[in-house]
């Protein structure tokens, strides 16, 4: 065999071994690489109070309320199978709205309520001008979450109403 051919096979075999090793490692750490848990996973296995976890899902339509002090929000996060209620005191991101995906970080307290210290909004992969979105909704051709069930924990845009019409002026 020519030296060049030998080196070619050597590189290909090394890359193959490296790929397999990486796939095995990533598979083994699969649970650690998950950025957030879904309400169903939480319902199946309630985490210990005080443990910091991230929880992701859609903000349940009609569940957002502002508490008496004006800075604490209460809402429910759903994956359309289970839902968890969240209390959060602070500023919500601009994309936070009912029906939109969010990821919250915080802990369950002793009484089993989730207290979030951070709320992050999750964007879906759809980009539309406001007029087109409005026209689509008006004509009833608004396809919620068509072919978007890529991540199991969040069903992007799967609620019946995606809330506001955007924050353009």
């Amino acid at each position: 065999m020519k030296r060049k051919t030998l080196r070619l096979y050597l590189v290909l075999i090394s890359l193959g071994l490296l790929g397999t090793a990486t796939a095995l490692v990533l598979n083994a750490f699969d649970r650690e690489l998950v950025f957030f848990f879904s309400p169903s996973e939480i319902a199946a296995e309630q985490p210990a109070p005080g443990r910091i976890i991230r929880l992701g899902g859609l903000v349940e339509t009609g569940s957002v309320t502002k508490l008496g002090d004006g800075a604490t929000f209460s809402f429910r996060i759903t994956d359309l199978k289970a839902s968890t209620s969240i209390a959060y005191r602070g500023v919500l991101p601009d994309l936070f709205r009912e029906g939109q995906g969010v990821v919250v970080q915080g802990t369950f307290n002793e009484s089993g309520n989730f207290v979030a210290s951070e709320v992050l909004a999750k964007h879906d992969e759809n980009y539309l001008p406001p007029e087109v979105a409005k026209a689509l909704k008006a004509s009833g051709r608004w396809q919620e979450g068509a072919g978007t069930a890529a991540s199991p924990a969040i069903v992007p845009g799967a609620s019946s109403d995606t809330g506001g019409e955007g924050n353009s002026p």
Binding site: F35, G56, K122, G147, T148, P156
Partner: peptide, 17 residues
Amino acid sequence: VDWWNTLHQPASIARMD
């Protein structure tokens, strides 16, 4: 973005549909 749930959204351009 497909293998794990991430904060980053899935692909918008390179999609089957």
